[in-house]
Simulated assay, not measured.
Amino acid sequence: MSKSPGHQKWPDHKVQEKHLDQSIQVSINGEAVADSSDVIQVDEDQHPLRYYFSRSDVSMDKLERSDTTTKCPFKGTAHYYHLNLGGQVLEDAVWTYEEPYEEHSALKDRLAFYDDKFQEIHIAPGPKA
């Protein structure tokens, strides 16, 4: 892993990670796609809160790898997945950092959902695990 060029260039830009001590669920149209008590919340300047889930707590059978990638100067290269729900495909609805910059190594291989991009996605606290 290498150092983040974003943090070096803009040292005042905040990207804070916090392990949550509660269960978080992602459901779309009533169908659960993630449920975990191992979630990292990321609070980044000028972005909505994001929740990063361990792959073992996500319904990976509903994900299909996309060719889409984006580059974040703070976290690294994001790789995307389409989310397949009973014939409905939400394109590039999920992303992961497989080789994040060292400042965000805790996000490695975790999955996050575009809860603001697709109104069908609802993230809410679940019951205590």
Rank of each mutant, 00 (worst) to 15 (best):
I123N: 00
H122N: 14
L49S: 04
N84V: 08
E103T: 03
Y51C: 05
L107Y: 04
L90D: 09
H82R: 02
E44K: 05
A124N: 11
Q22N: 14
P11Y: 06
P100G: 15
D38N: 15
P48S: 06
A124V: 08
P5A: 01
L49N: 02
P100D: 11
K62E: 03
L83R: 03
S4R: 01
V15L: 02
Y114H: 12
E120D: 12
K18M: 08
Y52D: 03
V42E: 00
Y80I: 03
K14I: 03
P100S: 12
G86A: 04
H13W: 14
D61G: 11
E17H: 08
K14P: 01
P127G: 10
F53K: 06
G76D: 00
S54W: 09
L49G: 01
D45M: 04
A93Y: 02
E17G: 11
S54E: 12
K108M: 10
T68V: 07
K14G: 02
K3D: 14
Q88W: 05
E99G: 08
M1Q: 07
G86K: 09
K3H: 14
L90K: 07
R50E: 01
K18I: 04
D92S: 04
S56Y: 11
A129Y: 08
E98Y: 09
C72Y: 03
A93L: 02
R110D: 08
F53L: 03
K9Y: 09
L85G: 04
